[in-house]
Design a protein around this nucleic acid. Sequence first.
DNA 1: TATTTAGAAGACAAAAAGGTCTTCTTATTT
DNA 2: AAATAAGAAGACCTTTTTGTCTTCTAAATA
Lengths: 156, 156
Amino acid sequence: MKPENATYFHSIQIYMFNKETEYALRSLVYIQSQNNQGLRPGIEEIATAAEAPQSFTAKILQRLVRVGFINSIKGKGGGFYFEKDKPDLPLKELIVAIEGDSLFNKCGFGMKNCSCENPCPIHNDYGIIRDEINRLVSEKTIQNLAQEFNYIGIGV
Amino acid sequence: MKPENATYFHSIQIYMFNKETEYALRSLVYIQSQNNQGLRPGIEEIATAAEAPQSFTAKILQRLVRVGFINSIKGKGGGFYFEKDKPDLPLKELIVAIEGDSLFNKCGFGMKNCSCENPCPIHNDYGIIRDEINRLVSEKTIQNLAQEFNYIGIGV
DNA sequence: TATTTAGAAGACAAAAAGGTCTTCTTATTT
DNA sequence: AAATAAGAAGACCTTTTTGTCTTCTAAATA
């Protein structure tokens, strides 16, 4: 006797990126877009624009400074900025720094030794998806997104 | 003074599916593949084959029984099985039941109101990926995978 | 140089995901 | 009917993710 219209009794969320990556992504794009206008936003402004929790964003940005993706200036008039002469930052670099490369390597079916010789049941189809993700995050840079962002206007 | 070769000081894992979905997927495929041979595996056998924690898998399978995806028989000689006359189960149904549909709906950039009229900076590229994921999980069924699984042989 | 502003650092806390264990129920077998 | 086998149910625990708060440090300015 099983209930016919029963639903799974809890619901979990899954996203392409986790929160940390998502906040980092939006924050960096905002920083770059402000830099483009000669401005150097502070943490409060960034968190608001990126719709991200301020303290958490502060911590994330600190890490990104440490890794060398962005620079910061302390004290009055301080804020975050990209160094002008650095090459554009592909999204993939950011993602790998934060999440590692499991998104780009791990088997979709969870097999440990999934390979072309010993493929999982969704090996080929999943490969297409992974290649597409790889292409997107390798080609697009924070600076690309900031351009579009400027064009589209704010409103994350 | 920032360290030049610094790495992000922690690492988080991100996968296409979460553990629960992954275990469910592998368990169901195993159940189907055994059913194909006239067998009705029990929880211990399934968990071992799916390389999933036994108690956790038991809980997941209980939920899947409640939702009606599979059936079970208690007591000696019991086990799990798919009802013969039910239509094949697309992966998407399983995923949506467990995780909800955020994988198929949510904006990759995390914008609340991302749409074609008000697109996020990666709207189009991400759309391609999402469509591809959608196609994969809509077309493929547990029964499809079980066929391939039988062909490939066990060894998740 | 004192004050103020703003990022840095890290301890701490809440929530979600992942997982275990015990007890109960149902079916089979002797 | 008793014993045994195996799934059902749910309390409970652990780890990871997500997030806050306080204190420290550096820069600018009056």
